[in-house]
């Protein structure tokens, strides 16, 4: 892995990029990352989400962090925001659950009800 290889990857990404930017269906995935979230294992959850999304070459999804969502007892928390749909809040997340959320929800559009805050309450 050298920085020359990075230039090649950049060129590949660039050729795909226009398609993505024009996509109105961008999905945003937010991971709660305050001290409480970090302590509860948000880091492997976030890194798993990114890896799975890359593996499946999903183009219209961005993963970022948010601060403390204020419901620390449910951390790690993952929120999925899709244009035109209600926000889905997943709680007590693990890397394994994150894989399910990518394959069921992000790829196939099926919310994993069992992991949502509604199921936890």
């Amino acid at each position: 892995m050298s920085l020359e290889e990075l230039a090649q990857i950049r060129d590949k990404v660039r050729s795909k990029m226009n398609i993505r930017e024009a996509d109105p269906n961008n999905i945003r995935v937010l991971v709660g990352m305050a001290t409480c979230g970090i302590a509860a294992g948000a880091r492997p959850v976030l890194n798993t989400l990114v890896e799975e999304i890359q593996k499946r070459s999903l183009q219209n999804i961005t993963v970022t962090q948010t601060g403390c969502i204020g419901i620390c007892q449910y951390e790690p928390i993952v929120e999925v925001l899709e244009p035109g749909k209600e926000k889905v809040t997943y709680v007590n997340m693990t890397p394994e659950k994150a894989v399910r959320v990518v394959s069921d929800h992000l790829v196939n559009g099926n919310v994993v009800d069992a992991f949502t805050i509604g199921a936890a309450e």
């Binding site: 892995m1 290889e5 990075l6 990857i9 950049r10 590949k12 990404v13 660039r14 990029m17 990114v50 890896e51 999304i53 890359q54 961005t62 970022t64």
Partner: peptide, 12 residues
């Protein structure tokens, strides 16, 4: 102009 947080770049 390629964002550093693109998954391909993260993998690199």
């Amino acid at each position: 102009e390629v964002p550093i947080n693109r998954p391909e770049i993260t993998v690199f």
